[in-house]
Design a protein around this nucleic acid. Structure first.
Lengths: 173, 173
DNA sequence: ATCAGTTGTTTTATTAGCAAAACATCGGTT
DNA sequence: AACCGATGTTTTGCTAATAAAACAACTGAT
């Protein structure tokens, strides 16, 4: 694997932590109508000091703006980022839970882990896919019914699967 | 979102960095027949000092074992982890590239980002899904053909999509 | 007006992961 | 024997993200 591939992991627009600071503000605005440093800290269950530092950096990056009275809100850029994250989270969670039939907790955890890592391209294509897959199109419904019935029949695969490549006739890496 | 969900991000078995140190050893064994600290550093394009420290920790964790002459290899646990990572990477890459039709580079990058984050459950179910989806089952083939034709017709969605929830009739979060 | 509670910030410390540089060691050449 | 190159380690410093603790400022109740 080329190093320019694996090193892109750190070169993300936002980190996991930042993603959740931003979405916390978004949800607090919905739920309480306001969001202060302490509210974010409580929501994320971290100390006020930690939240204060991270949010200071986010203000410097222009993703969060502060009221005359220490009330926080998302900037235009911040809102755009939160929208893309929540969209990806929703799509991934729906796919994992309603298609792959993973339990809701697992689906939520895994969606939360990857939501900030997927490119806009990937998010968009996945949205197309899941939208069609769960539509009332008879082809989609027939396919899903078939898949789920095979899932039930199938004895559990040993995981990790050593021979995924063989299973797919892949030339390995 | 409950904090016990988003905080699980850090509580992973292995980090992105560790995943690639381990897979580097695996691939070096395949390609060269051996793997030393310097070889890993070269493969990952990091300094020998950094690799030395990370690999020391991995030896302490019992994932890597060292030869009488500084030659590294994976332990049984290390091999098990590498197998699961490579399997997830292969499945995700295949899904993104061959189903969602993302270009190979994008598929590789995104697969690399999430490979170490997906649970074994998720990896297993995704493997089932992709395996059936790309099989010669006529239902699967018909569904894919239908999906791809819709992809072509479809004008690109605006991304981020603000109304994913509405699109899916989700109650939001 | 004082006292208590909440809030926000700063400082100090920790961990993971990297770079850079100094250092030691070993192997082969000349 | 002296040297060069490659290798491995250690030390120092950096950044992101956290905790913990100290501190200042504001709010409200009595």
């Amino acid at each position: 694997m080329a190093s320019d591939v694996w090193k892109e992991y750190e070169s993300n627009e936002i980190s996991h932590s930042v993603a959740h600071h931003l979405t916390a503000i978004h949800e607090l605005m919905d739920d309480l109508g306001y969001a202060r440093v302490s509210d974010v800290a409580r929501a994320l269950e971290i100390t006020r000091g930690s939240a204060s530092l991270t949010l200071k950096a986010l203000k410097a990056r222009g993703l969060v703006v502060e009221d005359h009275n220490k009330f926080l809100k998302l900037s235009e850029d911040g809102r755009r980022i939160v929208d893309s994250i929540l969209a990806k989270r929703a799509v991934v969670r729906k796919f994992l839970n309603e298609v792959l039939k993973l339990d809701e907790h697992q689906a939520e955890v895994d969606a939360c882990k990857v939501e900030h890592l997927l490119s806009a391209q990937t998010g968009g294509q996945l949205l197309h896919f899941v939208h069609f897959l769960l539509s009332d199109d008879p082809t989609a419904q027939q396919f899903l019914a078939e898949f789920w019935s095979k899932l039930d029949q199938k004895e559990e695969w040993q995981w990790p699967v050593q021979d995924v490549d063989q299973l797919f006739n892949l030339e390995s890496r």
